[in-house]
Write a protein that binds this DNA or RNA. Structure first.
Length: 820
RNA sequence: GCGGCGGUGCUGGAAUUGGUAGACAGUGCGGCCUCAAAAGCCGCUGCCCGAAAGGGCGUGUGGGUUCGAGUCCCACCCGCCGCACCA
């Protein structure tokens, strides 16, 4: 085979045609023809791509990794589900439409076409029969159905609330889509607006989302991020009552032991009861003016902790339930509506922020917890909380330690129905309305008589209409389509208006992994038995940037749908691997920055096998790497060397069982490689796996005169192990050597008989420094080892007649002489 | 501030339990082949001393444990990531 050149394009075309023709990577559902009863299933899933432009290096890496695992698991006897689809709704396509007038469906369609073409050219082993885009009515029909299911159970609700608004994209955003006060998509500073919007009640699941993290085989840092995001904290809820007007203000605190130190009260500018509180008072104008100003500031400005505290007095007082003291109510933007109850008791002696506020406005600072030592100064708050401090100025609780007081005061409150133990979560409900065009319409109509009416299931999908003008105007572009908006009430038949907002695209991607199991079902979103068979995803692979958003939402959907009886499991992704990003010149690749590197020039020049191997050879897959093509040639050279291995056909796998000498060493190397590389794949050490194949191939080249049977065997092993990484070349080489199809062969198993070494190298140290090494038969006795070591001239020189005080022998490893 | 991760040649990286640091690759240099080039093949490529044999140093810094430390312990420095006026 050495005469002809390695022509990756011819080889890749050939094998892709075979797989295409034979449907090699299709996997049947249980009960369908070809389904192997009793074979373990494995669902290998890479996060679905957002189709914009063409694939970049990150996609190549993601799907190459997934493909290695899919192939590996198939050859280990598993039925592998390995599907592909497109997360096709979303802002970039819509913004493109605004700029060019090209309908998002058209630009998205083109992009999908290109993604599909390239994925196929990479030879990724996908069951293409299961492919879909989330923008297809046959898909979003069921997205809408899920919305209605959530609505029916009170998990989707409509509410007027302060929400994050992006002035550039002219749409609301979920909390999770606001990064450091800026829009996740376009980077514009986000502001707060009062709007009526649709929410999903993810907070009902906070505790379970937290608890079930324990059963997941996920990277620690992703689990930590989710835990932080859910933000569970234990404390107490305490009601502070206002007499005039009569309003109760509950607060959450983690420090009920400091209740006697509460000298004032602060509520957030967005607090729904604020207007009522100040109505008709002389402070009303001041307060409303302050609220106006606070709301006009960007979220980022407000989050700046360096800034001096601001606020105004409301003229009202609330009563501290532990001592009946009247304390003044202030409004300030340092209190967030997003956390707790939007109101706080201020304890300036023991909280940094309250302290700053009290200093600025001359409010009382009363210490109620005594420091253990005299470390606390009067010009700063005492916030330490080691458990040893004791209470003062707190009536019957004086002398208790903080932890004791927390329990005692909480119990005291509970007994009098003034409060009690409480758990607070940072997690907020998921805002899903978007005032944008390119998304799944929310399947709701508004009727003057019947109010909010869900679109009946048999009228789904609510189709996204074609429109002329996609430009955002502060409300959904769908609102300008009379034909869409005007409808009849499903209940009373009277005139009604459709909801014109669309759903956040994260809704689409919160259940796509379920649809892959049963993608052509037009009677239901899925059949439970089929989904229960494939799910959960056994190995999920994707970028760490989805650690919170997508992964939290998908978990929530799974739990909610399981509670409804549609699913028989609680967690969607049993194991997760987060790949590192491929940057270019230090920056994240993005179309807007124009620094996207496409894999296609490399595929065109060197072939897909080279591209796949190179992207996995770059380094540990979880690490970020800066793109450079400087090593592509090296991977291509390696594949070329595999191609040029000139060996005789291998009659059968045992042909080389009894070879001797160099051939024996080669056999051992082959078996060692099988053992080590198999472990590498289990641990996602793909770069190491490929390095081991380099070593094996180098060894075959180094021993041109070894028994041809051993060389053939080693070559077949190389092709077999290379297959998950470079499937086309590996198929070709394997077939030429063995006449067989490599993917139909079980994954090779190392033969322990070949792993045993008859000779081992023993390092000889003197005082822990390597001075020589000796080659001895494996299993040589310690005394014999020491004797052999002592004979070495270089060892002698270092011993130099000095006294050996200790001899350490590590079997199979080393001898160390300790001298004085 | 809180939480997490990391620091190894010129570069990407390797080194199960503490046991030959630098596998494998890239880059560079030298050689072979060739009319020439490409491709390929061979050798060298951590720093310092040495003709060589060999020796000294070396895994962010300082200390410790150990016969032996990239690996374990303590302190520190630097970098990256996540969260953050969280009550």
């Amino acid at each position: 085979m050495s005469e002809d050149r390695y022509d990756p394009h011819a080889i890749e075309r050939k094998w892709q045609q075979v797989w295409e023709r034979e449907g090699t990577w299709q996997v049947p559902n249980p009960g369908e023809p070809g389904y192997e009863q009793g074979a373990p299933k494995s669902y290998v899933l890479e996060m679905l791509p957002y189709p914009s432009g063409e694939p970049h290096m990150g996609h190549l890496k993601n799907y190459s990794m997934g493909d290695v695992l899919a192939h590996f698991r198939r050859r280990n006897g598993m039925m592998v589900l390995h599907p592909m689809g497109y997360d096709a709704f979303g802002l970039p396509a819509e913004n493109h439409a605004i700029k060019t007038g090209e309908h998002p469906a058209v630009s998205t369609g083109k992009s999908i076409e290109e993604f599909r073409r390239q994925f196929r050219s990479w030879g990724i082993s996908i069951d293409w029969r299961r492919e879909f885009g989330t923008h297809e009515p046959s898909y979003y029909r069921w997205t809408q159905w899920i919305f209605l299911e959530l609505y029916e159970r009170g998990l989707a609700y409509r509410k007027r609330a302060p929400v994050k608004w992006c002035p550039k994209d002219q749409t609301v955003l979920a909390n999770e889509q606001v990064i450091d006060g800026h829009c996740e998509r376009c980077g514009t500073a986000v502001v707060v607006k009062m709007l009526e919007q649709w929410f999903f009640k993810i907070t009902d699941y906070a505790e379970r989302l937290l608890e079930d993290l324990a059963q997941l085989d996920w990277p620690d840092r992703v689990v930590t991020m989710q835990r932080n995001w859910i933000g569970r904290s234990e404390g107490a809820e305490v009601a502070f009552g206002c007499a005039e007007p009569p309003i109760d203000f509950p607060v959450f605190t983690t420090r009920p032991d400091t209740l006697f130190g509460a000298t004032f009260f602060v509520i957030a500018p967005e607090h729904p009861d604020l207007e009522r509180l100040v109505q008709g008072t002389e402070h009303e104008q001041d307060v409303l003016g302050y609220v106006q100003q606070a709301l006009s500031e960007s979220v980022a400005e407000r989050a700046n902790t360096e800034r001096e505290k601001t606020g105004v007095f409301t003229g009202r007082y609330v009563v501290n339930p532990v001592n009946d003291e009247r304390i003044p109510v202030w409004v300030s933007d340092y209190v967030l509506m997003d956390y707790g109850t939007g109101a706080i008791m201020a304890v300036p002696a023991h909280d940094q922020r309250d302290f700053e506020f009290a200093k600025k406005f001359g409010l009382e600072i009363r210490r109620v917890v005594e420091p253990v030592e005299d470390e606390a100064r009067d010009d700063e708050p005492f916030v330490a909380h080691s458990g040893e401090e004791r209470l003062i100025n707190s009536d019957g609780f004086d002398g208790m330690t903080s932890p004791e007081a927390i329990r005692a005061i909480t119990a005291w409150l509970q007994k009098r129905a003034l409060g009690g133990p409480a758990v607070n979560y940072r997690l907020r409900d998921w805002l899903v309305s978007r005032q944008r065009y390119w998304g799944a319409p929310i399947p709701i109509v508004y009727c003057e008589r019947d109010g909010i009416v869900p679109v009946p299931e048999d009228q789904l999908p609510v189709l996204l209409p074609d429109i002329e003008d996609y430009a955002p105007k502060g409300k959904s572009p769908l609102a300008s389509s009379d034909a869409f908006v005007n409808t009849t009430c499903p209940k009373c038949g009277g005139p009604a208006r459709r909801e014109t907002d669309t759903m956040d695209t994260f809704v689409d991607s919160s259940w796509y992994f379920l649809r892959y199991c049963d993608p052509r079902n037009d009677r239901a979103a899925w059949e439970r038995a089929i989904v229960d068979h494939w799910m959960p995803v056994d190995q999920y692979i994707g970028g760490v940037e989805h650690a919170i958003l997508h992964l939290m939402y998908a978990r929530f959907f799974t739990k909610a749908l399981a509670d409804m009886g549609w699913l028989g499991f609680q967690e969607p992704f049993a194991a997760l691997f987060t790949q590192g990003m491929i940057t270019y010149e230090g920056a994240k690749m993005s179309k807007s920055k124009g620094n996207v590197i496409s894999p296609s020039p490399i595929v065109e020049r060197y072939g897909a096998d080279t591209a796949r191997c190179y992207i996995l050879f770059l380094g540990p897959p979880e690490d970020d790497v800066d793109w450079s093509d400087s090593g592509v040639g090296g991977r291509h050279r390696f594949l070329n060397r595999v191609w040029r291995l000139d060996v005789e056909p291998l009659e059968d796998a045992d042909a080389a069982a009894d070879v001797e000498g160099d051939a024996r060493a080669l056999m051992r190397k082959a078996h060692e490689t099988i053992a080590a590389l198999t472990g590498d794949i289990h641990r996602f050490h793909f770069n190491k796996a490929l390095a081991r194949l380099d070593e094996l191939v180098n060894e075959i080249y180094r021993l041109p005169d070894a028994d041809p049977r051993a060389r053939s065997f080693a070559t077949a092993v190389t092709a077999s192990l290379l297959f998950p990484f470079a499937p086309h070349l590996a198929s070709e080489v394997y077939e030429r050597v063995t006449g067989l199809r490599v993917w139909e062969q079980p994954w090779p198993v190392a033969d322990p008989a070949f792993l045993k070494r008859e000779m081992v190298q023993i390092v000889v140290q003197v005082n822990g420094k390597v001075r020589d090494s000796i080659e001895v038969a494996a299993g040589t006795e310690d005394d014999e080892l020491k004797r052999a070591a002592l004979e070495r001239p270089n060892v002698q020189r270092h011993l130099d007649g000095k006294q050996v005080v200790r001899e350490i022998v590590v079997p199979g490893r080393l001898v160390n002489f300790v001298i004085r």
